[in-house]
Design a protein around this nucleic acid. Structure first.
Lengths: 227, 227
DNA sequence: CGTCCCCTTGAGTTATTTCAACACTCGTGG
DNA sequence: CCACGAGTGTTGAAATAACTCAAGGGGACG
């Protein structure tokens, strides 16, 4: 729909779009594409829009979301630099995607990839791999949503973020409490209260809402595994 | 582990294993495999076991489950005749699978499929497709688990089952209330009470616990979509 | 006929949500 | 420089959806 319009109209830095670049989506998967910049909370693509591109986070962070009719929202995933997202088997996107903070994102035409997959067997396997890994992540998340309580969910979340960070103990959370709540199937208040519980128990340091220090990783790990 | 032992030792009907059959896993994906019979609640494969085979339900029904350390269980999926399951990108299974009722299941060696995927591009795309469709299903399920209440969850479940049934209004549920509860992230009691609520509201008929008649599909659909 | 298993129902409990108030940060403009 | 307002996060108190515990019903089966 506005695939062509909104993103281009929203580039914070002129000249941020550079066509003809080679984008590496996976170890054995390169394709021609371009980069774009998205500002905080800007939509990368919307639910039900034609899935024309596949995306990769270069810098920043992206969330994918879905909403029920009455506005209840779910955040399906947070994507960090290096992550591929928007890879669909349907013609239309099944979720929307927004930049959590100002982000640089690489785009590759979906038709380019499909053509590649038909010719190049290694490419097809890489695409399968990307989808498989996403499936693993989502399945882990369903276990969290189905059977873990608030404390266990937040502990799992913090360790998940930590695993994708350069520093494993000093976390910088780019997303808001609301985003975390919608990711974990909780409310903002419960997330906030649980952060406070962890701080009171000296499991984390919380100098600022977005800065988390993991003081007792073992404590969080025990919680995350549901014991 | 007991991939070789337990299944073979558990065939209810002698001669149920027939080697050398051609199994059709998808429209353009056939491979040599064999069929086996599993009795009610018998394990098809266990969590963390080497993923040696890929499976397809011929008749009956299969559930995949995962458990937390303290025994809390989640049912990740119910598989009906025609469904492929156990297709993993890791070396080991990430969940266990059990027959919900006496079931006939086709097995294909994973290595056979991988060899096929490397040679045949159409086959690789079919495998990717299978994984993608599973991802779609699991993502829908996370929205249910994250943001729907008990009534909406059960309404969604009934419509989901109905969509895969020959008769769309007279459902025969092969799984127990406990299985449904673990699939929907609820307790047995809540599932049972919600069934009763639907019956009281004349949305379903419930002559026996496992027989459900959808009397007011529109009513259930409105609930399932969260409005 | 008794036992086992599953399902249902009731009553009381609890984790989480809801509603409400307040604190903090950060621009903006007087 | 300070006042102001918007946005975000925290905390308290009350409400509630779902859970837990407990009892009883109904088939299936030996």
């Amino acid at each position: 729909m506005h695939m062509q319009k909104a993103p281009i109209g929203s580039i914070p830095v002129p000249g941020a779009v550079k066509a003809g670049r080679t984008i590496q989506l996976a170890p054995n998967l390169e394709a021609t594409g371009f980069k774009m910049c998205f500002s905080r909370n800007e939509e990368v693509f919307g639910e039900d829009e034609p899935a024309e591109f596949v995306y990769k986070v270069i810098s920043g962070a992206v969330r994918t979301t879905r909403v029920l009719h009455d506005g209840r929202r779910q955040v399906g995933a947070f994507h960090s630099p290096g992550d591929v997202f928007g890879l669909e088997c349907r013609e239309n996107h099944r979720c929307s995607a927004e930049a959590v903070v100002d982000s640089e994102i690489a785009l590759v035409k979906r038709s380019t990839l499909e053509g590649l997959a038909l010719r190049d067997n290694a490419a097809a396997c890489e695409l399968w791999n990307l989808t498989s890994r996403e499936l693993v992540r989502v399945e882990d998340h369903t276990l969290l949503l189905a059977r873990k309580n608030a404390v266990e969910r937040l502990a799992t979340f913090l360790l998940e973020v930590s695993a994708r960070m350069p520093s494993r103990t000093a976390l910088e959370l780019p997303m808001s409490r609301g985003d975390i709540a919608d990711y974990l199937g909780l409310t903002i208040e419960t997330v906030s209260r649980t952060f406070s519980t962890f701080r009171r128990d000296r499991a984390i340091g919380l100098p600022r809402p977005e800065q988390v220090h993991l003081l007792r990783r073992d404590y969080l790990e025990a919680l995350a595994d549901g014991g």
